[in-house]
Design a binder for these strands. Structure first.
Lengths: 106, 106
DNA sequence: CAGCATCCTACCAGATACTG
DNA sequence: CAGTATCTGGTAGGATGCTG
């Protein structure tokens, strides 16, 4: 189980899954949307998600080429629990920062 | 938000939070329960969780000393979304492994 | 019992440059 | 547009030995 978590729970994976949950994205869409991600990590993370069967990659042989990433049905089942956790993070971010301040100062 | 995830979502944190969600544990309880964790990482992870205000540490000045770790109220609010994700992981582990096999072989 | 200090390694992840 | 290749520093995390 911890293996699954390590894949799904890392810095970029969750962000990508949540983004792709909203709508399919192309490579550079994601690159722009996920502020701060390097090409390397974007590609790596997408490959991992694809290998895990959470994301599917559709290549349209146009000129210039376009590649569309979207969630698989399995990926979509992840969306709900992941969003719950993301909501929790947003909701309690302030409290965590306060706790931090308490431990840092006193 | 990604910062929160990095702390909460790492290899050991979620395991500890879920364990402490069941009942308070002492240091060596956790060390035994979390098969494979080193003292170093157990201590480090507990300290991080404590600093984040998710876990509280109660020292009982007995001989020999005993230290009890438990979830704070904030930590308990994390339990639900985290369990949801853990359940998801257990439920879909097989599918992910199958997807892996597909990408490895063909 | 419940840690801390130190050393060490391997992998992770960013920056940068290049390609079909 | 959608990647790959290479180099490099940082950090996660294990092993070991010691302490109040």
């Amino acid at each position: 189980m911890t293996d699954i978590f390590r894949r799904v729970g890392d810095k970029w994976s969750m962000l990508l899954v949540i983004l792709l949950g909203a709508r399919p994205h192309r490579y550079n869409d994601l690159h722009r949307a996920v502020e701060g991600i390097s090409q390397r990590m974007l590609t790596r993370t997408l490959r991992t998600l694809e290998t895990d069967g959470l994301v599917q990659r559709a290549v349209h042989p146009t000129v210039p080429p376009s590649v569309e990433y979207s969630l698989t049905p399995l990926g979509r089942t992840l969306l709900e629990p992941l969003s719950a956790l993301a909501d929790w993070a947003v909701l309690h971010e302030a409290e965590i920062n306060e706790a931090h301040a308490r431990h840092t100062s006193g």
